[in-house]
Design a protein around this nucleic acid. Structure first.
Lengths: 170, 170
DNA sequence: AGGCGACAACCAACTGGTTAGTTGGTGACC
DNA sequence: GGTCACCAACTAACCAGTTGGTTGTCGCCT
């Protein structure tokens, strides 16, 4: 076995949940995709619900590792985050499903990472001119919005996003 | 009967679908919420799926009617759109569900309305300086992003959004 | 007026397929 | 002997969609 079973289950579940959401996903399908047995799922993860939570945590961690924050170069960070979203559409879908199906629940990893971003931004720019919290919110909002409504030409979109964030930071 | 049955069903279904999505919604629950009978749902709308489509169309229309586009005052339009989203969170959820559960399907009303917006914008600003299509995409992206990640102070957010769009337009 | 058919609506029970989660039994490997 | 894994069948519940039977209200014709 090249990869261990829990890992294979997590990855397969990530695909299934990203495609169909929590309510639409089927445990049997996850087992099949993982090339694993259904009982293994219930042995490692207690229930469909818990599996979903674990998958979301797992994926969020992968995103945070892949796109390090850069308080000095906000336009560059925004572009890299957008590019990551573009390269991993299923991760975006998964997080949207999570936001809809688990309303009011926020992810521990994401929250602490956000706090660290705000602190880093404040250290670089200070807070008097334009509060870091709100500036970051606008930048992330722009990235998320652009991600949801992709234009036809990625290179063009990249340049547009860079320009837009530069204007916000300006 | 104050309101006719199809209307009551549409409204009840809008609530149910906004909360739970297509896969998570229950037809019996919609009937109960509507104070109507289950068979009436199947008499007026053929199936759960078709009911979902009708609900989305219906709600989209309400949004387009409520927030008229203003090519001359983009920051004002952005703020009004955001305020509508803020006042109608269930509509936002419904459209997100639709985007996730009906991937690749675009709404006729929304598409034609978008085309009209682009045309209006081009008529006011011209296209040489900064293509209307892309500018509109950025403005809408910002609004959607801010909608998804709401700040603590609405009045502050309103002012921030206005400033941000002004910068984009400038 | 009275009678008739068409429709809107209700209630309740049912069907048939689906699906989360379980169980029991088997083998392989350390 | 314990752990990891498989297979297959099972259960218990759930749920979209159906059916049959009932009531009330119209418009219309005679």
């Amino acid at each position: 076995m090249v990869v261990d079973t829990p890992r294979r289950i997590l990855d397969a579940a990530a695909d299934e949940f990203a495609e169909r959401g929590l309510a639409g996903a089927r445990v049997d399908r996850i087992a099949e995709r993982a090339g694993a047995n259904k009982q293994r799922i219930y042995a490692y993860f207690d229930s469909k619900d818990r599996l979903f939570d674990r998958v979301v945590e797992d994926q969020i961690e992968q995103l945070l590792d892949a796109v390090p924050f850069d308080a000095v170069d906000l336009p560059g960070y925004a572009v890299r985050l957008w590019q990551f979203n573009l390269a991993h559409p299923s991760l975006v879908r998964l997080l949207l499903w999570h936001a809809l199906e688990r309303p009011g629940e926020q992810l521990t990893h994401a929250a602490s990472s956000h706090a660290r971003k705000v602190a880093a931004l404040r250290a670089v720019r200070g807070d008097d001119d334009w509060p870091a919290e709100r500036l970051l919110g606008q930048v992330l909002g722009l990235v998320h919005g652009i991600t949801l409504a992709p234009g036809p030409d990625p290179e063009q979109t990249r340049a547009d996003l860079h320009r837009a964030v530069s204007r916000l930071v300006g």
